[in-house]
Design a protein around this nucleic acid. Structure first.
Length: 234
DNA sequence: CTCCCGATAT
DNA sequence: ATATCAGGAG
């Protein structure tokens, strides 16, 4: 009975995460949902620390969707350049801001179906806004950290973020979804890092399929064979 | 699948 | 030098 119940292991993982990161929250600095949306769009393939460096000036110059929609492409690009992908992100931001004005009365919508119509916004970004600002457990944020940890912790074998999110939703109670995303990201940044994971320090080491990993050296994370992959049903 | 792209750690 | 960072679109 105590063999390998995935649900019980998930519950145990959740318990550790709640103890380790009792105040897990979004690290992107923001004061309103518009700022959170902008910061989250900027956070693609970029550290949150870098995003937080550029957003104060960006928000000071363009406090509302209307302001950002009117901003020049050149100025927005210059302000967000350090976050990378600045050309794409500048286009997303200005077009999204224009759509907020035209179709949503200059406000950030609180429904998933509306959020994902905005350029540069898919489920990951929408989940951040819905969970962090609106307090909804609509889904689970699956970013690069959650994707990596879901694999290492044996919570999902999928690669597609949408399928990983489905697997996690089946394992964790809905009311924990927003917390789970924030906590896994904190764990990923502090211990379960992509390059050099600190397994000996990790609070989840007892619950992790990656067992005898030598101190700080993540090499053994790569080896180890997976159980036979179960094929999808016809 | 590729492309977008600067900053930082290793 | 190279991998990685709170991804999304074509």
């Amino acid at each position: 009975m105590k063999k390998e119940d995935p649900g019980k292991r998930a519950a145990a993982i959740l318990e550790v995460l709640e103890r380790e990161f009792p105040r897990a929250d979004c690290a992107l600095v923001h004061e309103d949902p518009f700022q959170l949306l902008v910061a989250t769009i900027l956070s693609a393939q970029c550290t949150d620390a870098k995003v937080n460096q550029v957003t104060p000036e960006l928000f000071r110059k363009f406090p509302t969707p209307r302001d950002l929609a009117r901003a020049s492409r050149e100025e927005v690009e210059a302000l967000i350049r350090p976050t990378g992908f600045f050309s794409q992100k500048a286009r997303y931001l200005r077009e999204a801001a224009a759509l907020l004005v035209e179709r949503f009365q200059g406000r950030v919508p609180s429904r998933m179906e509306d959020l994902v119509t905005l350029p540069g916004v898919a489920r990951k970004t929408a989940n951040v806004v819905l969970g962090t600002w609106f307090g909804k457990n609509e889904g689970i944020v699956v970013d690069t950290h959650v994707k990596r940890l879901a694999g290492r912790l044996g919570l999902s074998r999928e690669k597609d973020p949408g399928r990983i999110e489905r697997d996690l939703q089946a394992l964790f109670p809905r009311e924990t979804w927003t917390f789970l995303g924030h906590a896994l990201i904190l764990l990923g940044r502090k211990y379960c890092k992509a390059r050099k994971p600190s397994c000996p320090e990790c609070p989840l080491r007892e619950l992790c399929p990656q067992l005898g990993v030598e101190k700080g050296d993540g090499k053994s994370l790569k080896s180890g064979k997976q159980p036979p992959r179960k094929r999808r049903k016809p």
